[in-house]
Design a binder for these strands. Structure first.
Lengths: 307, 307
DNA sequence: TAAAAATATGAATTTTATTCATATTAAAAA
DNA sequence: TTTTTAATATGAATAAAATTCATATTTTTA
């Protein structure tokens, strides 16, 4: 014995109540009076409860029927809502944008980008997960995240890396620090220094992957700090030195407390990429986010050039 | 193009999520893997949205699918609840008990009955409507109320009157009132009195229907009061006389401020009845209410006899 | 009491869902 | 890698269910 109330039934109960009768309800639902009559009969058989008072014509809801009507009025708007959510999803108006950032400092330029984005796409569900606790690219493939900001493009099936901008990793110390006398900083300069970094694995830090590991140099000490502003504070008070992307230090460039030097003679230059599932690039909001990121990058670049 | 999410779909989404895969979900729902696969396909076509990530095996919910799961978890318990409500209804554990009382004074003994009833049948929806604003018996036939307390049994199709108890209508005056000297009160005694009654039509008042109208007597004045206690207050301060059922005045019987006398030499005796739709007498809670009413009546009777 | 309006019903039909058998695909193991 | 295994997809056949049509029945109204 199957016993399943269906949405159809709820719609019918509501329509019969609102239209005041089965025949009028049938019009409302674009079906026949007979269909609804059969339907109601089936529903009453299934529930074992009289839902309508048949003594009267047109029929009216019984007490039990009114209970069902109450449920209908609660539930039906909810599925209407989800249907239109799905409609928005399909049309590209809404969607999910869960971002993993491998490059820790990217918070700095990402936030203003997301702020603009949020205004334009209020229905998109944005979330940022520091891509440190998990492997970002597999998560992207498994659809746990939708966008990964990374400096290390790989060839992966179904994943597309879009170049956002290039940046230089630069050395930052206090103005009083002895190394501020040098024209550029080499790997060996770190041997006696306290290096301040974000608390992530070395492979994700440009200083290590691009300079110290290739040259097999280990700094005297390593100190970790979460926030860029904290790192800069520590550097200013000469508790150590650090390496940051050039656009991060743009704002302290004309602050005489700091000294900023290139790493190695020709500098260390890196690219930043947006990795997405290839099919997601079709989505308007995704393209727009990448556009906005590019624009923000351009703005940063200009502000660097102008100095 | 039809676009209807059905409960079936919600159940499937939930089962796939909980069982972790279509095949296992099929077991859970007593159906085949194929059926669910087709079902999911249909649902995705209807909504136009990818609900499952098919790259992985077993398949997992996509972001949109998770939205649907959330809805499922909200909605499915609600219809489960209503199903069991209906089950209770069918089994007689719950139901509606909307009572109309034609006899105004019946509030007095009905409340303690309902209090007991409520404890035993917590799921029954009780309501009392003073049956003055409308015709109680037609309302009973139309299923607007389920029980009518009345003194005037009629032969009506589909309606059964169950005798509850008999009572006497008695005359009440202040002890100082001249009529308190008489052995019994006759219709003609009212000609010079102020009669205090409930504010209902005369045909529903025993004094009129049983005594004054048959004897074509009109009291000097009529004053109306809602509450029995107010009526008694007015009588005590000699602002008028009244006629009440004997069980109403039981509590003032040994109060020396009042005088209580029978109406006419042999007294006016009346019956009180519970009118219900005949089919409703099958319901256990309805029989129980009538039983309880009978018990309460017996208790009242005893307390009268003991005096 | 007849006429009109509303609902119910049975059988035929159409639509929809499910099954069966099997192909395809992803993950795990070798 | 390749093979094996587990999981899902699919097409055609079948089963089930909902809907329609034609008409009967019931309630209300004139």
């Amino acid at each position: 014995m199957k016993m399943h109330i269906e949405f159809r039934h709820l719609r019918t109960v509501r329509a019969v109540h609102e239209a005041g009768g089965v025949a009028r309800a049938a019009d409302l639902l674009n079906t026949t009076q007979s269909a609804l009559s059969h339907q109601i009969k089936g529903l009453e058989k299934q529930t074992g409860v009289e839902l309508f008072i048949r003594k009267s014509k047109p029929i009216r809801l019984s007490a039990a029927g009114q209970r069902l009507l109450k449920l209908a009025n609660k539930i039906l708007p909810e599925i209407d809502a989800i249907q239109s959510e799905f409609e928005d999803l399909r049309s590209g108006k809404s969607g999910r944008l869960h971002i993993a950032i491998e490059c820790h400092a990217c918070f700095e330029w990402l936030f203003p980008v997301l702020e603009k984005f949020r205004q334009k796409w209020p229905d998109v569900d944005i979330d940022i997960k520091p891509g440190l606790a998990f492997e970002a690219l597999p998560a992207l493939q498994k659809e746990n995240v939708d966008l990964v900001i990374s400096s290390d493009p790989e060839k992966l099936p179904g994943i597309t890396f879009t170049h956002l901008f290039d940046y230089k990793s630069v050395f930052v110390s206090s103005a009083k620090h002895p190394l501020s006398k040098k024209k550029w900083i080499e790997a060996s300069d770190f041997t006696k220094e306290t290096l301040i970094t974000y608390p992530v694995e070395r492979s994700r830090l440009d200083v290590f992957s691009q300079l110290l590991i290739p040259n097999k140099v280990e700094p005297a000490q390593i100190r970790k700090a979460d926030l860029t502003s904290i790192i800069l504070l520590l550097v200013a008070s000469d508790r150590g030195v650090t390496v940051l992307p050039d656009w991060v230090v743009a704002e302290i460039r004309n602050n005489s407390d700091y000294s900023i030097k290139p790493l190695s003679k020709k500098g260390i230059e890196r690219g930043l990429y947006a990795a997405t599932r290839t099919e997601c690039l079709e989505k308007p909001f995704m393209r727009n986010l990448i556009d906005l990121a590019g624009q923000e990058a351009g703005r940063l670049q200009k502000s660097l050039d102008s100095l």
